[in-house]
Design a protein around this nucleic acid. Sequence first.
DNA 1: TGCCAGGCCGGGT
DNA 2: ACCCGGCATGGC
Length: 221
Amino acid sequence: MTQALAAAAPAPRLLEAYQRLLAAFGPQHWWPGQTPLEVMVGAVLTQNTNWGNVERAINNLKAGNLLSLAALRALDLDQLAQLIRPAGYYNLKARRLRNLLDLVALRFGGDLEALWSLPLDQARQALLASKGVGPETADSILLYAGGLPSFVVDAYTFRALGRHGLAEPGLDYHGLRALFMASLPAQAALYNEYHALLVRLGKERCKKGRPLCAGCPLEGW
DNA sequence: TGCCAGGCCGGGT
DNA sequence: ACCCGGCATGGC
């Protein structure tokens, strides 16, 4: 009974974990990007890639005044690839960006509000239909560009929840996302901060470079 | 110097 | 249903 309850009721722990992280690290002010389009571009560019490299790529686009739907779609694939080269996987990501930009232009008439206005599941499916947009990229776009309450799961989330026993092992992306969304009120501001805090936690390293630091906000709890 | 970073896809078992 | 290789740059 006690065990069943503990396994079936992670909600209070997930909320308390959030409160601890927020108390320890403070607000993270995500996403680091000013416009919805910039956030979308960044979401693709940051796939398996350090954010510092993404910033270089985005700065290239900004420097050319290219950070608009029309300007980006006017580039040919090789030009785009060279501009985003610092972000790595640049040929691949140029195609992925093009797919996504085409989706916005052709299916939504270039109006992102038309995308955000859909029911969450439909907006998510629309993004996932774009080749190169997987679950994390889709949820990042929905949450950080669209302001919709779609929880973002990433590698840090898996590690943190596993390490601290906050979710049963073996949950996949969908399972973990569903757990968060069932455990927390559906508030974009909360999801925004929580994911950012989990990334912050993941980036924390003790001085020896090991993944678990003394003084971790979730340590021994 | 090697390893890693806010994934995703396609092909093979 | 998993498992794996490919994709690429820059920082530590």
